[in-house]
Design a protein around this nucleic acid. Structure first.
Lengths: 204, 204
DNA sequence: ATGGGTACTGGCAATATGAACAGTGTTATT
DNA sequence: AATAACACTGTTCATATTGCCAGTACCCAT
């Protein structure tokens, strides 16, 4: 259907999306020009016409901010992949690991998740994260003290609470049966931050 | 927080929601007046100012269509109401109790929830249901043994695991600090069944 | 080499829109 | 009886915004 966008057009589309997410209003041509760094409003106009021609937006003529996003329901739902059993050495975002996708609406969680991870094991049971739960993860390689993170140590991925010391980090389980894991700061790879949880008691 | 709306103001708010859902654009004062049947744009202006004062919308001055819906997501489709503190005697689905709505996509949970309930207290903590969690509830007046239910005893609403005996029922908490509640079958009112859980660690 | 799509600058006119001001009438509260 | 909030009509003015025309320049496929 919708033909491919050029890099610039994609940037303009992203810019519109951001405005929408930010203020709830579509931008004016002048605002787009301002954000994108154009000297002329008409540059934005041209891009908008291109985006409409390619089927990504609908322009309501003579209406202020009359830009309507089409195709992907950006503002109703976003399909997030569920990353399942993570094989050793495979990056967590590898497509091979995607079991299925689940629609997660924007704004369900304060922080927007990048993907979902199916929890295995009960090491975070005292934090209310159970085996089989889906956790919403925002991809990030940094995290703050006390946050629940998805971390990788030696090709293994776990969910733990992050405790930061001066030169090392500790991954804290939430289950007495498990021991805290102390990791030198340079061996720890943060994959993402826990931003939400979804549990379905009827799931299989 | 946000004070109560008059009927007219509610209608104007609905009108804005519809415009947003329909075209992706907030309406102008003239459009509101047109839809609502006002002869004067200023009638719409007055209502908008009232809505802003009461905390339902944000008006961006001097911007066309500068109406931003606050708190809840603007594009209502599969929005489920969050039922908060349930006052004694008030039916759980009373409109007065609706704090806000959250978009929940169909298919997120195996069983489709009817509403969301914000959990208060830690009586189900061992079942991974924490204070502040949102639980998705399917309205039902029957439940099977072992299911986690939303039940009402003497005008009070609680979330517990249901244990059915011959002539009575027991509501089982998941916290050692709480005692099981034995209820004659005819005094127990099932409000709904626990069908899912949503947790946002960043929610205030 | 020619035409079309992309990616802009710059400017102008028409209109869409918000804001402010001056009123009228009703209802609820003090 | 006075005050405030509500629910409007009607008008004017400033400015926000769109739409369009005229150019320039680059790249790609015929």
């Amino acid at each position: 259907m919708s033909s491919k966008l050029t890099e610039r057009q994609q940037q303009v589309l992203d810019c519109i999306r951001e405005c929408l997410a930010d203020t709830g209003m579509a931008p004016t041509r002048a605002e787009i020009a301002d954000i994108m760094g154009f000297q002329s409003k008409n540059a934005a106009s041209d891009h908008l016409r291109a985006l409409e021609r390619k089927g990504y937006i609908k322009l309501h003529s003579d209406r202020s901010r009359g830009i309507q996003l089409l195709d992907n329901a950006y503002w109703s739902e976003e399909e997030l992949p569920i990353v399942g059993k993570v094989a050793a050495g495979v990056p967590i975002e590898a497509i091979e690991n995607v079991e299925r996708t689940v629609p997660v609406p924007q704004g369900l969680f304060k922080q927007r998740p990048t993907y979902l991870l199916k929890v295995q094991g009960d090491s975070m049971i005292d934090a209310g994260i159970f085996d089989g739960d889906l956790i919403a993860v925002r991809k990030s390689n940094v995290a703050r003290n006390g946050e629940i993170v998805v971390a990788r140590i030696d090709e293994e991925v776990t969910v733990k609470t992050l405790k930061l010391n001066k030169s090392s980090a500790t991954l804290l389980p939430a289950n007495e049966a498990y021991e805290p894991i102390k990791v030198p700061a340079d061996q720890l790879v943060i994959e993402g931050i826990f931003v939400g949880l979804i549990r379905d008691p009827n799931s299989y």
